Simulated scan of single mutants.
Amino acid sequence: MPSFEEKQRRKAAMNQLIETSRAVRLAELPMPKEKADSYFDYLDQLLSQQGCDDTLRFTEQFATDNHIEFHLMKQWLAKYGGYCDCEALANVEDSFKDL
Rank of each mutant, 00 (worst) to 15 (best):
P2L: 15
P2G: 11
S3Q: 09
F4L: 10
F4N: 11
E5A: 13
E6Y: 08
E6N: 08
K7M: 06
Q8Y: 07
R10W: 04
K11H: 08
K11Y: 06
A12E: 15
A13T: 00
A13P: 01
A13G: 06
N15F: 10
N15S: 09
Q16K: 09
I18K: 14
E19C: 08
T20G: 02
S21Y: 08
S21L: 08
S21W: 00
R22V: 12
A23Q: 15
R25C: 07
L26A: 13
L26G: 08
L26D: 04
A27L: 09
E28C: 11
E28K: 09
L29Y: 08
L29R: 07
P30I: 13
M31N: 03
M31S: 06
M31Y: 06
M31G: 02
P32S: 12
P32H: 12
K35W: 03
A36G: 11
D37R: 10
S38A: 12
S38Y: 14
Y39F: 13
D41N: 13
Y42F: 15
Y42E: 06
Y42P: 07
Y42Q: 11
Y42H: 13
L43T: 00
L43Y: 13
D44T: 13
Q45H: 06
L46Q: 15
L46A: 14
L47M: 02
L47C: 09
L47H: 09
L47Y: 06
S48C: 01
S48P: 00
Q49N: 10
Q49E: 15
Q49Y: 10
Q50S: 05
Q50Y: 15
G51P: 04
G51C: 07
G51A: 13
C52G: 12
C52L: 14
C52I: 14
C52Y: 07
D53P: 06
D53G: 04
D54I: 14
D54Y: 08
T55V: 09
T55I: 12
L56M: 08
L56F: 10
R57A: 01
R57S: 04
R57N: 10
R57P: 00
F58G: 06
T59A: 10
T59P: 09
E60A: 06
Q61W: 03
Q61G: 01
F62I: 13
F62W: 08
T64Q: 12
D65E: 14
D65V: 09
D65T: 05
H67C: 03
H67V: 07
H67N: 10
E69C: 08
E69H: 14
E69W: 03
F70C: 03
H71C: 01
H71W: 05
H71P: 02
L72Y: 05
M73T: 00
M73C: 03
L77T: 01
L77A: 10
L77H: 02
A78T: 01
A78G: 00
A78P: 00
A78S: 06
Y80W: 11
Y80N: 01
Y80M: 03
G81A: 04
G82C: 05
G82E: 00
C84L: 04
D85R: 11
D85H: 10
D85T: 03
D85W: 12
D85V: 05
C86L: 07
E87H: 06
E87S: 00
E87N: 00
A88I: 02
A88E: 01
A88D: 04
A88M: 03
L89T: 03
L89D: 09
L89A: 11
A90R: 13
N91W: 05
V92C: 05
E93W: 15
E93H: 08
D94V: 03
D98G: 07
L99G: 14
